[in-house]
């Protein structure tokens, strides 16, 4: 019993000295990943309808942040406030399939 108690600090120290799981390793992922909501609980969008600047200005304040991208001559914007509902959008811009996330 006494010996076990003496070993406790050593075990504690050993645990502290062991290398932490490297983030992004599959082992670390299995240890730290948590299913917090069912799959597809967030309504991810695919090829959503987009509106023009005039229509969008009716709903967006000038100081609202948007994620913007210009690619192959096409410009698209995804307001951060709207991304908060979806987290993820499968979209296309200038013919290129893209994933927008926030």
């Amino acid at each position: 019993m006494t010996r076990s108690l003496l070993l406790l600090p050593l075990l504690f120290l050993g645990a502290r000295l062991l290398p932490a799981q490297e983030p992004f390793s599959e082992e670390d992922f299995q240890r730290n990943a948590r299913q917090v909501v069912p799959r597809d609980a967030f309504p991810v969008l695919t090829d959503p309808e987009m509106v023009d600047v005039r229509r969008a200005s009716e709903e967006l304040r000038d100081d609202e942040p948007v994620i913007g991208l210009v690619l192959n001559g096409e410009a698209r914007a995804w307001p951060i406030s709207v991304m908060g509902s979806h987290e993820l959008v499968n979209d296309r811009i200038g013919g290129i399939p893209i994933a927008v996330s926030w």
Partner: peptide, 14 residues
């Protein structure tokens, strides 16, 4: 980008 296309929809804090 006056010719930009824009996503609209329900707003939420993500």
């Amino acid at each position: 980008h006056p010719g930009s296309r824009v996503l609209l929809g329900r707003k939420a804090r993500g």
